[in-house]
Structure formats: C-alpha cells, structure tokens
C-alpha cells in the first residue's frame, strides 16, 4: 500500500473539480461537460476518463467491480482493478450484484442494475457528430442549436446502401429528448439497458476531456426511423457453457478446422448460471 499518494491517487482539489463536472453532467443529461483531465498512470485511450471519474466518486465503503468486454479477468480490467486496490484499499468483487461501483469498457452487465449503483463507462470519442463534422467548434454549436439533421442523413444513407442502419456499436441515442449522445462503444445490444436504468450512468473521456451522464430513470432512445425501427443483435443459439439465451455471446475459435464456441461475454453472469462451476451443455 503506497502512502505517498492520496486516496484514489488524485488530489482532493482535482476530485472536487471532477465531481463538479459530474454534477453538471447529471443536471444536463447527455450533454458533454469539458473538464481538466489529468495525466494518469495509465495511457490515454486506455480508460483514464473512467478512472478519473471512478477516483472522484469512490469512497472507502464502496465495493468495486471492473470489467472489459464484459469480463473481469481481461488484462486491462485486471490492471485498473489493481490500480484502485493499491490506491484505495477498497473491497473489489466480480459480482455485479454485490458491487456498488462498476467501471466498464464496452459492455453493460447482463445482470440488471439497481438503484444506488453507479456504472462508469470508458469513452474514447465522446462526440456523436465527430465523423460527420470534424471541427469541435462546429459540433458544440450543433448541440446548442439541436441541429441533428445530419445524423439522420447518415442513417438514411445506411438504409439506402445496406437496407438497414450499419452502426453496430456506439449507436447514437437521444437522451431525455434533448441531447444526442454517443453511449461509448457498447454493442447496440446494450442500448436498451440505458433507457430508464435505475442506476446512475457516468461516462468519462480522458483524452478528449469530456464527462457526461444519464441520471437514473432517464428516457434514452436509440435513433431510428418509424419504418426502420432500432433492433439489436441476436444469436440463433444459447451460450455453450451456461445455456443462456438472450445474452451477448462471444465467438471463440477453438480449432483450426473453424470449430467455434459461443459463450456469454459477461463472465460473472455466465458463472452464476452454472452452479458450482459445472460445465454447460456445449463443453
């Protein structure tokens, strides 16, 4: 345990600054609040935004879970969890239910969240209009003036070209009927979990220096057309380990003849469904 660093690494002044940004974000759901992102011991692009948000809201009584691609044991999740273990001494867990604070990259847990939990999502590119308009000065104006027509032009083009919208992750959403938001690179499969979630959802982009939030019970709608409604990915099969249907499945190539297994991306969810670690039907 290092004694040279403050609790959760950041100094109190910085944490206060970040919490102020978080409060602003909660007050204006979906709006990107600029903040003075600090250089962290992890690389930009590897979750510094999420880490700064977590570091600012974590307290000694919290129980922290960290996942990446839905799994607790991926290297980056391990690295971040260790960072907080070292700098806070806070209890950590792999159980979604037991956690009070969950930092995640690219997935929302399958286990439904409850009131009182905070989910911190790591965001690489916060600006939903970025690929349509590279200039920050212009996109800020577009948000202020609710000029989102160009996003629908993009959806229209997709439908024209492919017969459906081609965005499969980071699927743009409308928050509280006002702000267009990029929900971080979660698969569109997870978008419905954003709508009226009982938990507080916080989004941190360290390199781009933006924080945004979806307060509990906020309406979040994925963009679509009335005659081309938003739809999620589906698989024609169940998890080969636990038999779950309707969970996001990872595809694993298991031999060089192209044999594959499909397994829940959410490792905690999958493990809980398999009593005492029994292998599932596909094993």
């Amino acid at each position: 345990m290092t004694t040279r660093y403050n609790f959760a690494y950041l100094d109190e002044q910085t944490k206060r600054m970040i919490r102020r940004a978080v409060l602003k974000a909660v007050a204006v759901p979906g709006y990107q609040v600029p903040f003075g992102s600090r250089e962290m011991p992890l690389s930009y692009g590897w979750g510094t935004g999420g880490v700064q948000v977590t570091a600012s809201v974590i307290g000694p009584d919290d129980v922290l879970k960290v996942i990446d691609q839905g799994a607790d044991d991926t290297t980056n999740a391990v690295s971040i969890r260790r960072f907080f273990a070292r700098t806070t001494g806070v209890a950590t867990t792999t159980s979604t239910e037991a956690a009070t604070l969950i930092q995640t990259r690219h997935r929302i847990p399958e286990t439904p969240l409850r009131e009182g939990q905070i989910l911190v999502l790591q965001v690489p590119i916060p600006e939903p209009l970025r690929w349509l308009e590279p200039r920050e000065a212009e996109t800020r104006k577009m948000h202020a003036l609710e000029e989102y027509g160009v996003m629908y032009v993009r959806l229209y083009e997709d439908i024209t070209r492919h017969g459906k919208v081609a965005q499969t992750y980071e699927y743009p959403v409308m928050v509280d009927g006002r702000y267009l938001m990029r929900p971080s690179p979660i698969p569109k499969f997870d978008n419905p979990k954003l709508d009226r979630s009982p938990a507080l959802l916080l989004f941190g982009a360290g390199r781009e220096k933006r924080i945004y939030a979806i307060p509990p019970w906020t309406r979040v709608k994925s963009l679509d057309f009335d005659d081309h409604p938003f739809e999620v990915e589906h698989w024609d099969r169940a998890c080969d380990l636990c038999g779950a249907q309707g969970a996001f499945l990872d595809e694993l190539i298991v031999d060089d003849k192209g044999g594959r297994l499909f397994i829940c991306s959410d490792t905690d969810y999958c493990a809980r469904r398999r009593p005492a670690g029994e292998p599932g039907p596909g094993a």
């Binding site: 229209y156 439908i159 024209t160 057309f225």
Partner: peptide, 22 residues
C-alpha cells in the same frame, strides 16, 4: 451523400422520421 439524402436532409432536420416518406 446520395441525392435523396441531400433533398431529405431539411425534412429530417425538422423532425421527419419515416424513411419511406422522406
């Protein structure tokens, strides 16, 4: 973007949400 998208943009900016009608 396509000619259709060019013509439809203003409509979509004003809230048109039916692809077929746009």
């Amino acid at each position: 973007v396509s000619a259709g998208a060019n013509v439809g943009e203003r409509l979509m900016a004003l809230g048109a949400r039916h692809y077929g009608r746009v």
